[in-house]
Design a protein around this nucleic acid. Sequence first.
DNA 1: GTATACTCTACTATTATGATAGAGATTATA
DNA 2: TATAATCTCTATCATAATAGTAGAGTATAC
Lengths: 146, 146
Amino acid sequence: MRITYKGDYALKTILDLALHYGNSPITINDMARRADIPTKFLEQILLDLKRGGFVESRRGKIGGYLLAKAPSQIKLGEVIRFVDGPVEPIACTGKKYSGCNDVYRCVFRKIWQDVFLATSKIIDSITFEDLAKSVKDKVPVYTYQI
Amino acid sequence: MRITYKGDYALKTILDLALHYGNSPITINDMARRADIPTKFLEQILLDLKRGGFVESRRGKIGGYLLAKAPSQIKLGEVIRFVDGPVEPIACTGKKYSGCNDVYRCVFRKIWQDVFLATSKIIDSITFEDLAKSVKDKVPVYTYQI
DNA sequence: GTATACTCTACTATTATGATAGAGATTATA
DNA sequence: TATAATCTCTATCATAATAGTAGAGTATAC
């Protein structure tokens, strides 16, 4: 799994919205300023998140963005996968990995699968409600412990 | 963690060398053919692995590549980190992450740290001896189980 | 009707990735 | 010693991903 700037910004933005859940819409400008993200870049990211069903928007005066669902219904893993793609360490599809034609491939594939599972277990067990609570209470978020 | 083609090829190549550990050197051509890697690309990769201290070479006739240490002394994680860089899901260094200046950052940082630890636990517990044995015995490699 | 705020398409710059090319250096051995 | 086999090194190139920027357009509250 690799988190890009875009992904990082998306996560911060959804957390911002989660912290204001239930209130009036928040403008792109406000969020961009708070998280120090270029406004025009954040515009693109929010349009993407809207297409993904994570946020909704209101145009015009008193417009802005809102979460499309409750923070408790948005898993961290969902957002990561949507913005930055699959969590697997290597693309196991396509011609290079279309089958277990040689034994080397299979040996490593099992390992990538295990890394994938361990990662998923962490990011899919955390919701934005957890993250928002963690911020409000100023305590580290609880993650799946090995 | 993201494994590139270069990384994938490097791992396969070291496994190939591990399977022939103790024998005479293996040529780039042989390895490239067996793993279906472009020869010139594999040349670059092997030079890199040599600089990393993983392999050594013999020039001239009857030349080729050998492992620089026993397969049991080469961890999977070492090679991955050397070829494809840090295992962390996000670059937590540099100006963007130079300090815990805002609370959002810290919330996520804990999570990336946990993903990092879970991943490391898997890839650092496997050596190329384990992988070679796994190939020879035709059984999946044992990985750290959650 | 106008200011505010989202929407949409297109464009650009930089870097990483995945190679390829070709001349050079070293070594075994006939 | 000649030569074939093999690694070594520097440079170059093509494509895609990433990280933005630009600007005209649309909707809404007041």
